[in-house]
Design a binder for these strands. Structure first.
Length: 326
DNA sequence: GATCCGTGGTA
DNA sequence: TTACCAAGGAT
């Protein structure tokens, strides 16, 4: 067994891996072929970077781009968003998914305004205290917005480390202490290089070292890859899928689609029974309401979904109807 | 630590 | 078509 705290690439692959060489190779690759994303622009504000990181949680870049652009134009600073009702953040979250993120981003904007003088805080500790900001997002914002040396560990970085260094097809099913130690051991000591290293490993995982059918022929560090050297062994477990059809989540999503389109409280009966004349419904909700009814979910399930949304603060009762939070 | 939380593209 | 998967966080 490798003693804790001493796990370095050279201990795993004696003589096979030159850490500085890896740093240089990925740094060059990133400079040459990284995607140009607006939140990577030198003029992107810390607020823009924070918004992008939250939107990118479990959500692909291509779907984040248009919503991020809309948000930045609409709310260029935390103060702009903090002045709005929380429901506006949810409404303009659109179909990004996990709408609680919009709620928390709004709460984060309020906290930034009230507790940080309107400026996104720059330390990992302060960032971590913001709603919706966990260890990954705090590290990412500290690194990418404030240039700090942070151990950034996301799903892409975990997968690259698993393959490149550990020789596994996939990382462990949950983030382990050993993975954090490895990430720390791999992080360049130079602060500026460490920021680019975090970004480049993440980019490699997103574009080349993908979960399914990785493009190893295009990989700038394939010669050092422990997984390739081992003959691409298969994963030691089969990932369990995320159920969707027939779940409460599906019903919640359909209800949220109705609320986003509504310009007035939607009577609760409208969620349970298709009104003979949708003219009685708030304008615009006809299509999402029909989609909800098409699910034909049991009254008990619909009840659970509505209660859950109220409990989570994604919906509120007004005049006997549901609407986005004020 | 396991579970819950949206949505849509892709193999 | 079904199932996997995507820059996680909160409980």
């Amino acid at each position: 067994m490798t003693p804790p705290g001493t796990m370095v690439p050279s201990a795993t692959q004696p003589g096979a891996t030159d850490l500085a060489g890896l740093h240089h190779a990925l740094d060059g690759w990133f400079a040459e072929s990284a995607r140009e994303l607006p939140w990577r622009s030198p003029d992107c504000s810390p607020w823009g970077i924070l918004v992008s990181e939250v939107m990118l949680q479990q959500t692909p870049v291509v779907r984040v781009l248009p919503v991020w652009e809309d948000w930045m134009q609409r709310w260029p600073t935390p103060a702009h968003l903090a002045k709005e009702p929380a429901g506006e953040a949810v409404r303009h979250w659109g179909r990004l998914g996990y709408p609680r993120r919009a709620l928390r981003l709004h709460a984060a904007a309020v906290a930034i305004q009230e507790q940080h003088g309107g400026a996104v805080p720059g330390t990992h500790h302060e960032l971590l205290s913001l709603p919706g900001v966990g260890d990954y997002t705090a590290a990412a914002v500290a690194a990418f917005a404030y240039g700090q040396r942070e151990t950034v560990v996301d799903t892409n970085i975990r997968r690259v480390h698993a393959r490149l260094v550990s020789g596994h097809a996939l990382p462990a099913q949950s983030l382990t202490a050993a993975e954090m130690r490895l990430a720390e051991a791999l992080l360049p000591h130079d602060t500026s290089l460490s920021v680019r290293w975090n970004a480049s490993v993440m980019e490699l995982g997103a574009v080349v070292c993908t979960a399914r059918s990785p493009k190893c022929a295009e990989c700038p560090v394939r010669a050092s890859c422990a997984w390739l050297a081992a003959g691409e062994p298969p994963p030691s477990y089969t990932p369990k899928g995320q159920a969707w059809h027939g779940t409460d989540r599906q019903v919640r999503g359909a209800v949220m689609a109705v609320l986003r389109e509504a310009d007035a409280p939607v009577p609760r009966e409208m969620f349970e029974h298709a009104p003979a004349d949708l003219g009685f419904a708030p304008s615009g909700v006809g299509v999402p309401l029909a989609a909800l009814h098409r699910l034909n979910s049991a009254p008990q399930q619909l009840g659970r979904a509505l209660d859950g949304l109220l409990r989570d603060g994604l919906a509120e009762l007004h005049d006997g109807g549901l609407q986005l939070p004020a």
